[in-house]
Amino acid sequence: MSLSRARIRRSSRRSTGGRATLLAVAALAGALTLSACGGPDGGKPVSGSGGNYVTGASGISTVSKEERAEAPKLDGETVDDGTLDTAALKGKVVVLNVWGSWCPPCRAEAGHFATVSKEYADAGKDVAFVGINTRDNSKQNAIAFEETYGITYPSLYDPAGKLMLRFPKGTLNPNAIPSTIVLDKEGKIAARTLAPVNAEQLRSMIEPVLAEK
């Protein structure tokens, strides 16, 4: 083999290895981006261990009543040093919002959550809002966020994201931040979105579940 051919082969191997490294880094960055502030699922029906669900063009996923999976036990310390167990809220429609003070989309939707939660509370409807604050290393950051945006309902403090991992795989689980999940009156997962929502979208998730008999 000539010296020039050997050099070409070595150069080709280095180039291929470099491309593989770049692809691996890009894939990792994409995964981290999704887990930090991700977007919605696609618009196709999905079958999982929690039944069949459909994600619409708005990014909101819903599952029929007979196909719903039981929500996991969500309990622990709250941002304001209290305690909360969502099992005590059975009989109400429960709106779970996963958020972090560091997350720009969470800041964008926070005012809508404050508005809609107050509407339902003032109307005396059987709807409870619960936040799940995650990846905030300081409660002070979370408290400042709630005060800034007028959030008055409680938030479980979950800096390591352990509560999110309690949701069964294949169900409408909160695998991005922000995520919003609506539980029906029996404590089953009825709807989810992995994108920030406005007040109209939030009501569209709640009302059909609230109207169920």
Rank of each mutant, 00 (worst) to 15 (best):
139 K>E: 15
139 K>R: 11
139 K>H: 06
141 N>E: 04
141 N>L: 03
142 A>M: 14
142 A>V: 07
143 I>G: 10
143 I>F: 04
144 A>M: 07
145 F>H: 10
145 F>Q: 09
146 E>S: 12
146 E>N: 09
147 E>H: 13
148 T>G: 06
148 T>Q: 13
148 T>K: 15
148 T>P: 08
149 Y>D: 10
149 Y>E: 15
149 Y>T: 11
150 G>M: 08
150 G>A: 08
150 G>I: 13
151 I>M: 14
152 T>Y: 14
152 T>I: 14
153 Y>F: 03
153 Y>P: 12
154 P>A: 12
154 P>M: 10
155 S>L: 06
155 S>D: 00
156 L>G: 12
156 L>E: 11
156 L>A: 13
158 D>A: 00
159 P>H: 14
159 P>D: 04
160 A>L: 11
160 A>K: 01
160 A>M: 15
160 A>H: 15
160 A>R: 14
161 G>Y: 03
162 K>F: 14
164 M>P: 00
165 L>D: 06
165 L>F: 03
165 L>C: 02
166 R>H: 07
166 R>Y: 11
166 R>S: 03
167 F>Q: 06
168 P>V: 13
168 P>R: 10
170 G>N: 03
170 G>M: 02
170 G>C: 02
171 T>A: 02
171 T>N: 02
171 T>D: 00
171 T>R: 00
172 L>N: 03
173 N>P: 12
173 N>W: 00
173 N>T: 00
173 N>C: 09
173 N>Y: 02
174 P>R: 05
174 P>Y: 01
175 N>H: 01
176 A>C: 04
176 A>Q: 01
176 A>H: 03
176 A>K: 01
177 I>G: 03
178 P>A: 07
178 P>H: 07
178 P>D: 10
179 S>C: 11
180 T>S: 08
